[in-house]
Simulated assay, not measured.
Amino acid sequence: MTIQLSTAVRNALLDSIETAVGASPVLKIRTGAAPASPAAADSGTVVATIALPADWMANASGGTKAMQGTWADDAADASGTAAHYRIYAADGTTCHLQGTVTATGGGGDMTVDNTNFAAGQKFSVTGYTLTAPNA
């Protein structure tokens, strides 16, 4: 039998992720494939960097946890095609989360309004939700 978690445990698990990453983390959107794990060295070119809000995720509910506040930048760092993201502690160097990036409706772990970044272009994250096991 597969281990099953109550909704309360799933919510606590998700809320603990935000606690472990900490307040005001840094989101970097990059080109190319994601590294093998958050512990592996960065890969690809950083096309965008966003300092996320201090309270960057809503409280978990029903085994999911969604982005909170506005995740946007008035000027992308470089030109390139967004393919993966990494979320770092506020120090900008300790990676805790990573996943795929697609345009809205594209099915990525994180969605943005446009994956073709031009240096200086304004962009926004349109969706980001964490889902706990068996939610």
Rank of each mutant, 00 (worst) to 15 (best):
D74T: 15
Q98E: 12
T102E: 13
A8E: 15
R86V: 06
C95F: 01
V9Q: 15
A60S: 12
T100H: 00
Q98K: 00
V125W: 08
R30Q: 12
G22A: 02
A40M: 07
A39C: 07
I17T: 11
G69V: 05
A78F: 00
H96F: 13
F117R: 08
Y85Q: 02
G62Y: 06
A72E: 15
R86M: 09
T70K: 10
T64E: 12
G44K: 06
A89W: 06
G69T: 06
V47L: 06
S24F: 05
G108A: 08
A58V: 10
T100M: 01
G108I: 10
L97V: 02
G92A: 01
A66Y: 04
T64W: 03
K65N: 11
T111W: 12
A132W: 08
W71M: 02
T31D: 06
P35V: 07
A118S: 15
T102C: 01
K122R: 15
A135T: 09
M1Y: 14
T104C: 01
W71K: 03
A40V: 08
T31Y: 06
Q4I: 14
V125D: 11
K28S: 10
T100Q: 03
A54W: 08
G120A: 05
G108P: 07
T111M: 10
S79I: 01
A103T: 14
V47Q: 08
T115M: 06
V47R: 04
L97R: 03
A20G: 11
R30I: 06
S16L: 07
G108N: 12
L13H: 10
L5N: 13
K65L: 11
W56R: 06
D74F: 08
G106L: 02
A41E: 15
T19C: 05
G127S: 15
I17K: 00
A118R: 12
K28W: 08
A60K: 08
G106N: 08
I3A: 14
F117Y: 14
W56C: 02
D15G: 02
V101K: 01
V125T: 11
V112P: 05
W71I: 03
A41N: 15
L27T: 05
K65R: 14
S24Q: 09
G127C: 07
A34E: 13
N116R: 14
T126Q: 05
T64Y: 05
C95H: 00
W71E: 09
A20I: 13
S124M: 14
G107S: 08
M110V: 09
V46F: 08
L52D: 07
G32I: 00
V9Y: 12
H84V: 02
G69H: 05
G127V: 09
A135D: 12
N11M: 02
P53W: 10
A34L: 03
I29D: 09
T131P: 03
L5T: 13
Q68H: 09
N59L: 12
A8Q: 14
M1K: 14
V21C: 01
T115R: 12
Q4E: 15
A8V: 14
A51M: 08
T104W: 07
D15Q: 04
D91E: 03
G32E: 14
Q68Y: 06
A132V: 03
Y85T: 07
V112H: 12
D109G: 11
